[in-house]
Design a protein around this nucleic acid. Sequence first.
DNA 1: ATGTCC
Length: 468
Amino acid sequence: MSYKYRVETHSPGHRVLPRTGEMKAEVHAWLDDGLFEATDEALWQQAATAAAHPGVKAIHLMPDTHLGYGIPVGGVVVTDDVLIQAGSGYDISCGVIYLEVPGLHAADIADPEKRRRWVDAVELRVATGLGDHRPPRARDVAYREVQQIFRYGAQALGVPAELCERHYIEVDDAVFDERRVPRARDRAQPQLGSVGGGNHFIEMQVDRDSGAVWVMVHCGSRGFGWQTANHFFYAGAELRGLPKKRREESWLYRDEPLGRAYWAHHNAAANYAIANRHTIVDGVREATRAVFDAEVDVFYEISHNLVQEETLLLPDGSTERGFVHRKGATRAFPAGHPDLAETKWAATGHPCLVPGSMLAGAAILYPQPGAARSACSVNHGSGRLMARGQARRELAHIHDEIDHEMRTIRRALGGVTVEGIVGNTARTPLDECGHVYKDLDAVLAVLESEGIATVAHRLYPVANIKGV
DNA sequence: ATGTCC
């Protein structure tokens, strides 16, 4: 019997897969009718498998969910004393940093030629794409500084804590050993301050309502995090007696030696990713000064692939501590959450930064009291509709139309008509174009209708730099 | 996501 068939509808945007077999908890899915119908049986099977890990207390699927490895993308798994490596995945602490450009308004960026110069200026200063390529003017960071970043993240760069979800995560120095994963250590120094490939990007966006100009950066822990994750997938599979092919199903007790080692190395990779995002800001700042004579200010920085130990808000109103694995999901602490006490976000909840696509743009959300229903989590994007290979094959015949749409799309942004989205590539990458993603507004509507979060700002892209 | 290969 299929899992999808068993899913019950509790409210228009809330589905529940009841506990069966080895599942330790029921699966809560935040999907409306259309998003639910589009899910595959394989997704539900994967969610049920994830719910069968030891120590699972709760599991949620965000409205952008789709099949991942081990745990669905858009999956949130809450455990007590267990760490699941697939719960943060290969790009440990992949996430977003958002910059405001208070000196600029939509009218100042309306000229596409000027946006083209900004794209070129950013590419000159920030490395993009795979590997160790560094731009000519990359900031020179001594390896000793990188070692500080492993332990103290953005704090090592002097970034104020209030600008970050976590400006660093504590690393157990008795356990963290950078020689343990030599290929990780070797990548860390040359790749600091780089964007990487895939869906990572730097993008200029404009607020639909106010015309305010923002820059969003989406990137992660690069080779350092990938090598770290890969090492602990294999080591965990060996420990649990799983064949290598099933390494993504492995898990660790937090208090066994390999669990303690994973926790230390995972957190070092998170610190690296957080510092990486803040380092990239240096190049964006220089480029924005050079082309627009304007300053950028960091608004907030947040991960969407991360395991964090945090205070859980339980349905009966009590709290306890646990590990929250967000695999393509964004933390969403509402006003009054204990872990926001004495921060600037205590009375409002912290912002959730959600990229959509290079066509549909992005949003800033604020968690509502109903966030407690979804393990204080929201989606991390709009969700992939099509695999990369499928996109390249099936959209090739409309590539010209896709490029034309990017060049000519006209939007009223803060009362100013802005035409075209300037890119850094000759052609729009088909595996990243707007058509391979679900409708961001439909995904966000589920959060609003279920009382989980509200959309405070809706932003549209005007210039995009992809890591290709 | 990833020098696309434990």
